[in-house]
Design a protein around this nucleic acid. Sequence first.
DNA 1: ACTATAGGTGTACGTTGTACACTTGTCAAG
DNA 2: CTTGACAAGTGTACAACGTACACCTATAGT
Lengths: 218, 218
Amino acid sequence: MKQMTATRKPLSRARVLAAAVALADEAGLEAFSMRGLAQELGVVPMALYKHVANKEELLDGMVDIVFSEIELPPEDLDWRPAMRRRAISTREALRRHSWAIGMMESRHPGSANLRNHNAVMGCLRKAGFSFKLAIHAYSVQDAYIYGFALQERDTGFETPDSAGKAAQSRAQTIGGALESYPYLTEIARKLPESAYDNAAEFAWGLDLILDGLERLLR
Amino acid sequence: MKQMTATRKPLSRARVLAAAVALADEAGLEAFSMRGLAQELGVVPMALYKHVANKEELLDGMVDIVFSEIELPPEDLDWRPAMRRRAISTREALRRHSWAIGMMESRHPGSANLRNHNAVMGCLRKAGFSFKLAIHAYSVQDAYIYGFALQERDTGFETPDSAGKAAQSRAQTIGGALESYPYLTEIARKLPESAYDNAAEFAWGLDLILDGLERLLR
DNA sequence: ACTATAGGTGTACGTTGTACACTTGTCAAG
DNA sequence: CTTGACAAGTGTACAACGTACACCTATAGT
């Protein structure tokens, strides 16, 4: 075992998971590999399998870390601000870990996942939502949150650079037929100068949904 | 070239794309490979590269096929039923091609994509939505549609079988601490007997959003 | 009849996840 | 103090993937 004890503290499942999340954050899911992760940890690839069954299980654990970063609906708040907080917290977690966006509900659920879902459902039920209405309310909100995160990842330009690249890519497909898409050209013209803000956009739709729910609750 | 002309009509980009969509539909994105597709077409893997630049470009084309299956907002309808129709049509296309769910807005846009976006934006603008309100309206709706499709794929049990499997998987994580998650157990108890219907659930949230938009338009 | 070209083939390389057999550092029981 | 079990890290190897590159061949235009 060469010089391990001197140079390196031993691995652990937690250390592997943390490094995996960090690597996926900066490299993206596409470039995230067991081999790359091993290298990051200064270890041979197969060493990881002493702490994690396989890549699938590793991803399960990573997703549960993301869930653990999401703020639970605060118990001391009314349902509406509580839901608002947790929705915003969820979006922020997904921004930090955009590789997780398609995977939040598709993987073997971990304990942070269960705690989260239980708390959200509990918040609604305790606020007086009937079971059926609570299911509806949960469904719309999560669909919106996950869907918004998806769109933000795909078209969300924080850098004006990437906005330019996307526009160019579109222009390439459009070719000479620009006049066929008048409403797209309107977007291309007006959006850049409209101080579009992802967080504000998210809140706008969220409040529209919460308004609707509030009306139905009464 | 052996017996090609006798046994097999020549490939074409369209044929490759169609076969790719069909294969992804039944095998899932994970199991979808260039080699598998080639086999399906009775051809050696490298033959595909005469009609498609690489796998990425192939996926771009596949996604645009999905877009082409989405009904445009009918011109002769008022904005609200028109938006409703195209939302439902989008969900249905995504159910048919669930491998496309995370990719609709992330890939190099094809012409069906552009036509679709232009038509949706046009429908809103012509109905009197201001530019900013149209952007908001578009954003909420699409976030909801894509997010719902995602959840439906991940937790949508059309077979009571898969519902059982999911429940068992959850129970395994919960272990003995079932009483820690009272609201999850409520769901597990009540949902199965509540005739939950994905299409109806989708329409419920969609109408909530459209209600909100209608109020803001006036 | 000749040749350019489009379409299909065969081989090969680098990268991936991971099975399996191995070494080695640590520690408990005799 | 020895022993031997066990946990952790190593090394080799394999199948499957995307695809570069050189090659063949059937057809079409001159």
